[in-house]
């Protein structure tokens, strides 16, 4: 692959996903055409049940589309073996779920180190990397807490740390701030936009229109189809709150 002709990270053509059979058939995604380039921060919005989460799952190779084409890095996904798909999930994709989805049996640092297991990194190294990334999120004092002992914001930060620990190029976030208060939301959004600035591709599903200010492109979905697709939002002035949390993050990363 020549550097100057890098294909888009994600290209969807006529994507369809059906649930149920017969009379109960229901198209969750009904013909989506979408191209996402490297380094975009896409916010996906829309009412409940319009297929946002399903789209995200398909993009993250967790679910399969029934019809249409999905090319990831120029390669049709239907031609990639399951094992290979698992490796792509392990090395290129980071998931942030709305419901955090930490493994409740494992403590914070083990949860964060979980994706590294499947990259074949030794235990000591895993814990080292996990510890480093937790420090970035100001969670280094919580390393040996169990997930149930954390607040919502902390839990989501752990979940994001886990999504980032294997340095994925694509980050898929399903309502990452859905359960959080605005303060925690902003800290997390700062983190995501910081990742975006470092060249990562971020696709975020959200209900909150305020969060779209962080994105470079906003897509709204309706009934399994793309309704609007707005690019190049004029950068809004940075609020006082955002400044403050940005400073805080920078200090933490030193």
């Amino acid at each position: 692959m020549a550097v100057d002709t890098l294909p888009p990270v994600i290209r969807l053509r006529g994507l369809q996903k059906r649930f149920g059979i017969g009379d109960a058939e229901n198209l969750a995604i009904n013909g989506i055409n979408l191209t996402i380039n490297r380094g975009e921060f896409v916010a996906v919005m829309g009412p409940s049940g319009c297929g946002k989460t399903t789209l995200l799952n398909i993009l993250g190779l967790l679910d399969r589309s029934v019809d249409g084409e999905y090319e990831l890095d120029g390669q049709p996904v239907s031609e990639i073996s399951k094992r290979k798909q698992a490796r792509i999930r392990s090395q290129q994709i980071g998931f942030v779920f709305q419901s955090f989805n930490l493994v409740s049996r494992l403590n914070v640092i083990e949860n964060v180190a979980l994706p590294l297991i499947y990259k074949g990194i030794t235990r000591t190294k895993r814990l080292q990397i996990a510890s480093d990334i937790l420090r970035n999120f100001h969670l280094n004092e919580r390393e040996y807490y169990m997930p149930c002992q954390l607040s919502g914001g902390q839990t989501q930060r752990v979940a994001i740390a886990r999504a980032l620990v294997n340095e994925p190029s694509i980050i898929l976030a399903d309502e990452p701030t859905g359960n959080l208060d605005s303060r925690s939301s902003h800290i997390i959004m700062e983190e995501l936009s910081d990742l975006h600035k470092r060249g990562n591709t971020i696709i975020m599903v959200t209900h909150n229109p305020r969060l779209t200010t962080y994105a470079s492109r906003v897509i709204t979905m309706l009934d399994g189809q793309i309704d609007t697709d707005t690019r190049n939002i004029t950068k809004q002035p940075v609020t006082r709150h955002r400044k403050k949390s940005a400073r805080k993050l920078k200090r933490g990363k030193k």
Binding site: R89, V103, Y118
Partner: peptide, 16 residues
């Protein structure tokens, strides 16, 4: 079941 789902999402293959 949920843990299996999480592990798969984080890159575990079926054989893992």
């Amino acid at each position: 079941t949920r843990e299996i789902g999480i592990r798969k999402a984080l890159g575990a293959s079926n054989s893992d």
